[in-house]
Design a protein around this nucleic acid. Structure first.
Lengths: 204, 204
DNA sequence: ACCTGAACACCGTTCAAGT
DNA sequence: ACCTGAACACCGTTCAAGT
């Protein structure tokens, strides 16, 4: 996709190392379901010395924070796309967004874990939780629409949003950790849990 | 509470190092909200060489797994105690158990995170998720009772249990990470989220 | 039987020195 | 202006050697 380190003829100032580091890290996060983030390993794969990244990121935590922000941006896109497929029905849009959320995390566990890691928050300026909230804005709008259309209970939206976020966040992590076994029968726990969530939101 | 390392006259075989290591680790987890678990630091504080713990635990992951199991046992006790305070009302018992769950995690974030850490699961024999499920048995019984008493919807209990676990798990972690801001007004998001959960369980 | 000390391979981080 | 190499303090893990 971009300059290969092995063919790094052009200049030993290696184009735009900052971007290369980010791309490399993202690739490694995507490839290995549970890889322990290592600055040196990223540098190695990017084909630079282990000290080079420090010219572009003050420390490891800052890099993690940046990756987390990019992750939240992608999550927002995923949610928005899911909602866009059902512009008519708030109910369907909501359910699809919730499923898309869980799938996002389950498909990229290493990234999802990183997004909520203590180290990433430590490295972040205030903007990290802002991005997280931004990603969840999609769900918030859906809740508001649902209330206006009279299909969701009229409750403070912030509380409902907390319930939704906690539910999908919890489902994502429990699934990643393999703690939500389908057990005997084949009723996916995620679907069942989301159904319960919806029943808590919808008017009887 | 037990033998101090500094006064370790008695025998340089230091009593029961296995227990001392576990106690020391638990104390450190309880004291520092977000401390990065370090075998060497535990050994240091326990007053033994950094190699000594290896005589009692095959590796770091095993120690983490053991601590996680103890954590789940304590969680089960906390939940059971909460339920016991309201033997009459399933609804109240359920709500109090949920609150107790979140409080458990919020009061000991380092321990709670550890209980669900990838490293702890890696170090565990199969029994770890079993203990986790065991802790949740308390909630499961409540759901069954609620269904029998006709106050909860009749749905597959496993699905409802998944919804409950995901909700409290998510709330706990989001609270720990400081992502559930009370914002302006003083309506605690946790209470609101739990109310929504209950409405999803209860019959209209 | 139980613990220590040195050793190894790995990290994150820094800094003089290279181009 | 951007990168490298050696260096430092830290880890997890192992193993011969001590009591």
């Amino acid at each position: 996709m971009q300059k290969k380190s092995t063919s790094g003829r052009t200049s030993y100032h290696h184009g735009d190392l900052r971007r290369v580091v980010l791309d490399t890290a993202q690739a490694m996060l995507a490839e290995d379901r549970n890889w322990q983030f290592t600055l040196r390993e990223v540098a190695r794969r990017a084909g630079v010395s282990h000290a080079a990244p420090y010219k572009h990121f003050p420390d490891k935590a800052s890099l993690l924070a940046e990756l987390a922000m990019l992750g939240f941006d992608r999550l927002r896109e995923v949610l928005a796309a899911a909602v866009a497929t059902h512009p008519r029905s708030v109910r369907k849009a909501f359910l699809l967004a919730a499923i898309a959320y869980v799938r996002f995390g389950v498909e990229q566990p290493a990234l999802y874990r990183l997004m909520f890691s203590a180290e990433a928050s430590r490295g972040a300026d205030v903007h990290l939780s802002e991005r997280a909230l931004n990603a969840l804005g999609v769900l918030l709008e859906l809740l508001q629409r649902g209330q206006q259309e009279g299909i969701f209970r009229r409750r403070p939206v912030r509380g409902q949003a907390a319930a939704c976020w906690a539910q999908v966040h919890g489902l994502t992590l429990l699934t990643i950790d393999g703690l939500l076994l389908p057990e005997k029968v084949g009723d996916a726990p995620v679907d069942a849990a989301l159904a319960t969530l919806l029943e808590g939101l919808e008017l009887p």
